[in-house]
Design a protein around this nucleic acid. Sequence first.
DNA 1: TATTAAATGCAAATGATTTGCATTTGAAAT
DNA 2: ATTTCAAATGCAAATCATTTGCATTTAATA
Lengths: 139, 139
Amino acid sequence: MGKTTDDILAKIGCKNTKSRKAVVEILQSAENPLSAEDIFFAVKKQGSSVNLSTVYRTLDLMESKSLVNKIVMGDGKARYELTVDGHRHHLVCTNCHKSVPIDFCPLEKMEKDIGMRNDFDITGHKLEIYGICPKCKKE
Amino acid sequence: MGKTTDDILAKIGCKNTKSRKAVVEILQSAENPLSAEDIFFAVKKQGSSVNLSTVYRTLDLMESKSLVNKIVMGDGKARYELTVDGHRHHLVCTNCHKSVPIDFCPLEKMEKDIGMRNDFDITGHKLEIYGICPKCKKE
DNA sequence: TATTAAATGCAAATGATTTGCATTTGAAAT
DNA sequence: ATTTCAAATGCAAATCATTTGCATTTAATA
């Protein structure tokens, strides 16, 4: 059984508002990381509405609590996804921008090692792999 | 013997201008990936000057020819470095923003595998590892 | 040296994200 | 249930990196 929207918001220690619920719901049903604007329109499509600023504020808050993962893409827009086990990586299609999650982290083992070798305290990493997805290959 | 500025520009197939030379020179002597603004000021410090737009145009051009590697960081500014062997990764200090290059690619072996498993044609990847550098640890 | 497409500088435009502030709202206390 | 008030929201304006249009300059070739 997955986490409910309320479970997720409860962790934040903040007001459980209509806007925030809407944002979380969209993120939960998303198959890909979404931009703030994606979320804004998805909420609208559901019949309700959130201000774009509120979407940003909610995402920032959630990121600061490690509830969402912010992915900064080359196109100048950030995408967000609910955090699963700390982090997750994606295979991103450079043609259609769809992305599929990779179910493991290729760095897990190396990270500690690389940190030690350079005397860094490692706090995290970002990884994205780019390519052409099956669908776009056909076209 | 390293490549000269002219060697690098020759590959582009474009005019060899004062501005472009200046940008390449700065990139060559840089120890870290630099932002467009960093480059702009570094050129100024040398006594010459380039317009910021020109810096961006030069970087875009070079990126399109795979002569520089554009790194999109979480702080909203892109950094650029001369390409070495296709790509290179960094350990980035989240406190002072200094970065040290990692002398190998942790993904080399896995990439092909991941691509096959997902039926993607892999074209590249971006990886950055974050942490606190030795110097900042002390403070 | 003359010619001309390519490159530059400048100022204005863009687009994602952030912010200030007046208003509204959720939740704790009554 | 009502009061209370910090927290959250909406809105419009501000920011900031990057891009673009256009008039002017320049490198490369004849």
